[in-house]
Design a protein around this nucleic acid. Structure first.
Length: 301
DNA sequence: TCATAGCAGGTACGTTGTGT
DNA sequence: ACACAACGTACCTGCTATGA
C-alpha cells in the first residue's frame, strides 16, 4: 500500500460521500469495485484505517466527514468543492491513468507542447509563502536576449494550461506577470519583502481575463451571442467567473460578462470565429470586425 | 451500546552499510 | 559494480479502553 494508494482512497471516499451519504460497508464495496476497475493494490481497508483516513481527509482537504448514528451513514458536513483539491484530484486521475499500465501508451496521445516551467512551481510557492525575493533569467517571446529579473513574488496563476507568477518587478518598479515556461536559473534569495497592504489578489484579478492585470483598461459589460452548439460548450466551460446566461433559444445563446476586455480576451473572441458575435460594447465589436477584415485581406489574391 | 481513539505489533519497502 | 543484510520508516490491522 503506497502513499499514492492512500490518496486514491481518500479521493474515492470523498467522491462516494459526495454522491450520497454511505455506510462503512457501502464505502468498502466502492473501494473494492474501484480496485478491480483500476487494477491497483487492494484499496479496501479496515474500519480503523478508514477512521484514520477521515482524520487525514479533514486535515489535508478541510473536508469534515461526520457520522450519523441513527442512519448509520457517514456524510460530508462542510463540502466546499475547493478548487485546489479538485485540481489535485484531477492530477491524480491523470497520474493514475498513465501509471496503470505501460501497454496503454498505444491508446494515449499527448498534446504536443513545450516544457511548461512547472518545475519552478514549488520553489516559487516557497518564496511566496516565506516572502523571499527571487531572481531568474527571463526571455520574452519577442526578444532573443535573456534578462535577469529581480522580483517580489505574490501569486501563482494558471491560464490556458500555462503557469505564471504575478510579481513586483524591483527594477521596473511595477507589477508584472511572468510565464514560468520562459523563466530559468531561478534563485530564491534571502532578502525578505513585505506584502503590499493595498493589494487584495482575488479582487485584483476579479475583472481580468487571462494574465493581464487590471491597469490595462476599464471594466465593461460585454454581451456575446453564441450559436447554441457553442453555447452548450460555454455553459460547461465558463469564459469568466462573471459569466451569466441571459437568453437561450434553440438557435442561439446570449452570454453576459463583466470584465476588462484585455488582449487575451480579444484573442479568445477571435478563437470562436464565426460561432460568436459581440453585441456589446460597440467598440469591441468594431475591433473584432477590423481584425477579421484584415485577416480576410491575407487570403485575397 | 457503539463510534472513536490509543497502542502494540506485523508487513512492505526504501536506504545505508558491508563484503565480494 | 553488485548482492545482500541491517535498519528505519510508513502504513496497515487487531485489540481494547474510553466516553457520548
Amino acid at each position: 500500500m503506497s502513499k499514492q494508494d492512500s490518496l486514491l482512497r481518500h479521493k474515492i471516499i470523498i467522491q462516494k460521500l459526495r454522491s450520497q451519504a454511505s455506510s462503512f460497508g457501502e464505502i468498502q464495496n466502492k473501494l473494492q469495485s474501484e480496485t478491480d476497475l483500476l487494477d491497483v493494490d487492494n484499496l479496501v481497508t479496515s474500519l480503523r484505517t478508514f477512521q484514520r483516513d477521515l482524520l487525514d481527509i479533514a486535515s489535508f482537504y478541510g473536508i469534515e466527514i461526520k457520522y450519523n448514528r441513527s442512519k448509520k451513514v457517514y456524510f460530508i458536513e462542510n463540502d466546499s468543492e475547493d478548487e485546489y483539491n479538485e485540481r489535485m484530484f484531477e492530477a491524480l486521475d491523470v497520474f493514475q491513468a498513465l501509471n496503470v499500465n505501460q501497454s496503454f501508451s498505444a491508446y494515449i496521445q499527448f498534446d504536443t507542447r513545450k516544457p511548461k516551467g512547472t518545475e519552478h512551481l514549488s520553489g516559487i510557492l516557497y518564496a511566496i509563502q516565506n516572502k523571499f525575493q527571487i531572481q531568474f533569467r527571463y526571455q520574452k517571446f519577442w526578444e532573443t536576449e535573456e534578462e535577469i529579473r529581480s522580483v517580489e513574488p505574490y501569486l501563482l496563476k494558471e491560464f490556458r494550461k500555462r503557469w505564471y507568477v504575478f510579481a513586483y518587478d524591483l527594477k521596473h518598479k511595477e507589477f508584472r506577470t511572468f510565464g514560468l515556461d520562459r523563466l530559468s536559473a531561478l534563485n530564491i534569495s534571502s532578502n525578505k519583502f513585505q506584502f503590499p497592504q493595498k493589494i487584495n489578489l482575488k479582487e485584483y484579478f476579479k475583472d481580468c481575463f487571462g494574465i493581464v492585470g487590471p491597469n490595462e483598461g476599464e471594466v465593461q459589460d460585454i454581451l456575446l451571442k453564441f450559436t447554441s452548439h457553442q453555447g452548450n460548450y460555454i455553459k460547461t466551460m465558463p469564459l469568466h467567473e462573471s459569466q451569466q446566461i441571459v437568453k437561450e433559444t434553440p438557435e442561439e445563446t446570449l452570454v453576459k460578462l463583466r470584465l476588462i476586455p484585455t488582449y487575451d480576451f480579444l484573442m479568445e473572441i477571435l478563437y470562436y470565429g464565426e460561432f460568436v458575435q459581440v453585441l456589446e460594447p460597440k467598440h469591441l465589436a468594431d475591433e473584432i470586425k477590423h481584425k477579421f477584415q484584415r485577416a480576410v485581406i491575407l487570403y485575397q489574391s
